[in-house]
Simulated assay, not measured.
Amino acid sequence: MEFKWNLKKNNQISDKNFLRLTGIKHTTFNKMLEILKIEELKKRFRRGKTNKLSLENRILMTLEYWREYRTYFHIAKSYDISESSCYRNIKWIEDTLIKHPNFQQLTGQKSLLKDYFKDKTVIIDVTESQIQRPKKDKNSTTQEKRKNTQ
């Protein structure tokens, strides 16, 4: 039950609907495709099993993961692959795109957080306040214990 993706379908979808579906424009998708094709050719010189999914499907799978926050298990079932294979594909695409200069904004949440908290002041209120707690009585606790034993 693999979702078949081909370039004809890609070009037939309007830019507005493609943006709604994937979260990116056609031009960005095509740039990603070009970058990943080059890296895929470099990767083929190493040994290993060929991938079951086309590169377009793997990109779409990654975009689906980014856009919808679906789990690897659910995405893997949609594309009829194993969960670990889904993780490896998404991780490879993320790592490859992060290394490319055109996609440096994908460097991760930690770098975004560093910029966010730079030159900011945080004030925390740490005043003490009393909490009312019930007083323990020896008679009430033993009665409870006796009630629970029967």
Rank of each mutant, 00 (worst) to 15 (best):
E94H: 12
Y79R: 05
Q143A: 09
D115C: 12
F117S: 02
I35A: 08
T50F: 07
F45M: 08
R67V: 03
D95W: 05
S85E: 11
Q109M: 15
K8L: 12
T28E: 15
S140F: 10
I38G: 06
N10D: 10
V126Q: 12
E68W: 03
V126S: 11
K52M: 06
K147H: 14
D115L: 11
E144P: 00
K31D: 13
N17E: 13
N139H: 09
T149E: 15
S78E: 06
S14K: 05
S54C: 01
T142E: 11
S111Q: 12
L36P: 02
K37G: 08
N148G: 07
N139V: 11
L113H: 03
E68H: 08
L36T: 05
P101Q: 09
L53G: 02
T27R: 13
K8D: 14
N6F: 03
Y72H: 04
N89C: 13
D115A: 14
Q105Y: 10
W66S: 05
N102C: 04
Q12Y: 04
T62R: 05
L36E: 05
S54A: 02
T121N: 15
K110Y: 09
R58V: 06
R88C: 06
I131F: 11
Q132C: 08
L106Y: 07
Q143M: 13
D125Q: 00
R47E: 08
F45C: 09
N148I: 13
D125I: 05
T142A: 10
K110H: 08
E40I: 06
Y69D: 12
R46N: 11
K77A: 08
E56T: 06
K37N: 12
K147I: 07
K147L: 07
Q104N: 13
I124Y: 00
M1Q: 13
T127G: 07
L36H: 01
K25D: 06
S78Y: 02
K9P: 01
K8E: 15
N51R: 15
L106R: 04
I75E: 00
Q105D: 09
F18L: 14
Y87A: 03
K120A: 00
K25I: 15
Q130E: 15
R46G: 08
W5H: 08
D80M: 04
Q104H: 13
T62E: 01
L21A: 09
R70K: 14
N11E: 13
E68V: 08
K99L: 09
T27D: 11
S54D: 01
M1T: 10
S85W: 05
F103I: 01
F18S: 02
W92C: 01
R58G: 02
K145P: 01
V126F: 06
L113R: 01
